[in-house]
Design a protein around this nucleic acid. Structure first.
Length: 433
RNA sequence: GUCCCCAUCGUCUAAUGGUUAGGACAACAGCCUUUCGAGCUGACAAUGGGGGUUCGAUUCCCCCUGGGGACACCA
């Protein structure tokens, strides 16, 4: 039996990370078994569906590298199919027309279905209040359309969130009434937030798009999502997509809800960033900065690569570059008040910075080694502590009290900018209380 | 309220009858260091409770407790 799975989102909101993980598990399972991954859009509720969300779903799946082998199929375009199957049940007396809707006639009994993760789950049908197949507006309900489509699309495994467990017995009796073969069901646990309740807006970012914007790498995000509820074995943490496909085992997915741990995601993303070749990372950062209007399209790639090399180990998310390292791209840098107050507003600082400026100006070769040598020589001659010169100089050059190694930063910025910033800080910001 | 599902460090997880209960993130301490970060080292940290079954239970069974989910002509 060939593996055929589907991911069936409703375009009623941005693609949620919980949905993304469901899509990922389906996709990994399909790819692992050389099967087919189908995208189906459940847009029977025209009032709540919105094309903008559809675009977001496509973009988010594309970002994650989850590509559909078939689809997208739209339920809104399959109305005659549902009507035909409803008629079949009506004709056979298994359903009746009531108040404009088609209702399934539920006979009291026990329904048992097999869940790949949990074993047999049995339910008493008398617990169902009613089972509407077709609403009075002529559109199918979720449980009906889902069964008809899954059967017609020859879905072999229905992998979905465990919030659907209660729907499954209803669907099973519909498969049976329609004389259609049952797929294998696998209900995977939900992702929860800090309050252990299902991930909601209160938690912070919940859509894939938000994570994309902040600058998480698709491989890292997919890696993290895969690790939520499943482990590749061998104490592996960093597992690139190709290996995820190779190692993924649906039967080993845990049954407990997993807490979405932003810190671990950040760490993982940092690991992926660290592993990237500098030129590639530089191009990625450039694209981002250009989009933000921080960098001009005609930028110098060599300089950007030098910046990238210096900040690579410090980035957790791409957004960090505009949060922490913006001084590379602004002239003059934006001076942070606390940094100025702490390191520049001290007696003699201005004079020292001007002295450093004079010494650096004399350098024929403005590289990291020469800058460091010059700075340390001045520290030694004036019997200073290195921090008494370096910290103010850092603030003068970067506007902040925290930065990558100062001598590297200076070398990248170049003599002109460095001299100008030292002078500016010494004369306009330093000493004055 | 009714029904269903679940239960290992703070978090993600490994170990399905025999381990000093392992790893990772976080937090903490130290090293390195011009700051921060990165890196390295170290210490701390868990089988929810009670009954069984067994020579032996994280592991199998039952009860309790706790958490979550579902109870729409929404999906």
């Amino acid at each position: 039996m060939s593996v055929r799975v589907r991911f069936a989102p409703s375009p009623t909101g941005k693609l949620h990370v919980g949905s993304a993980r469901t899509a990922l598990f389906n996709w990994l399972f399909a790819k692992h078994h050389h099967g087919t991954f189908i995208l189906r859009i459940e847009d029977t509720d025209q009032k709540r569906s919105n094309p903008a969300f559809l675009d977001d779903i496509y973009a988010s799946l594309k970002f994650l590298g989850i590509n559909a082998d078939e689809g997208p199929l739209f339920q809104s375009q399959r109305m005659p199919i549902y009507q035909e199957h409803a008629k079949q049940l009506l004709d056979s007396g298994k359903a009746i027309q009531k108040e404009g809707a088609v209702m399934f006639q539920i006979s009291p009994r026990q329904v048992t279905f097999k869940d790949l993760l949990r074993g047999d789950i049995t339910t008493d049908t008398t617990l169902f209040e009613s089972l509407v197949l077709m609403k009075s507006d002529g559109t199918p309900t979720y449980n009906f359309a889902c069964v008809v489509d899954d059967a017609l699309m020859h879905i072999s495994h229905v992998i979905r969130g465990d919030d659907h467990i209660a729907n499954t017995p209803k669907q099973v009796i519909l498969y049976e009434a329609l004389g259609l073969p049952l797929p294998v069901f696998a209900h995977i646990p939900l992702i929860v937030g800090a309050d252990r309740a299902r991930l909601s807006k209160r938690f912070g970012a919940t859509s894939v798009d938000e994570y994309r914007r902040v600058g998480y790498l698709p491989e890292a995000f997919v890696n993290y999502l895969a690790l939520l509820g499943w482990a590749p074995g061998g104490n592996r943490e960093l597992v690139p997509p190709e290996e995820l496909i190779e190692l993924f085992d649906l039967a080993k997915v845990r049954k407990t809800a997993a807490y979405f741990d932003q810190k671990k995601l950040d760490w993982l993303n940092g690991q992926y960033i660290k592993q990237m070749p500098v030129p590639k990372l530089a191009r990625m950062l450039a694209e981002r900065l250009i989009n933000k209007g921080i960098l001009q399209p005609g930028y110098d790639p060599a300089t950007l690569e030098r910046i990238t090399a210096v900040i690579q180990d410090r980035l957790r998310v791409l957004e960090d570059i505009e949060e922490e390292h913006i001084f590379f791209f602004q002239d003059p840098p934006q001076y942070q008040d606390e940094a100025v107050a702490k390191f520049l507003r001290q007696d003699g600082v201005g004079k020292r910075l001007l002295e450093l400026r004079t010494r650096l100006e004399a350098l024929p070769q403005f590289d990291t080694a020469a800058i460091e040598q010059t700075t340390r020589a001045m520290v030694a001659e004036q019997q200073l502590q290195s921090k008494d010169l370096i910290h103010p100089a850092r603030v003068a050059v970067t506007g902040r009290s925290v930065s990558p190694p100062l001598f590297d930063v200076m070398a990248i910025l170049g003599k002109t900018k460095v001299l100008h910033r030292l002078e500016y800080a010494a004369t306009k910001l330093a000493d004055t209380q």
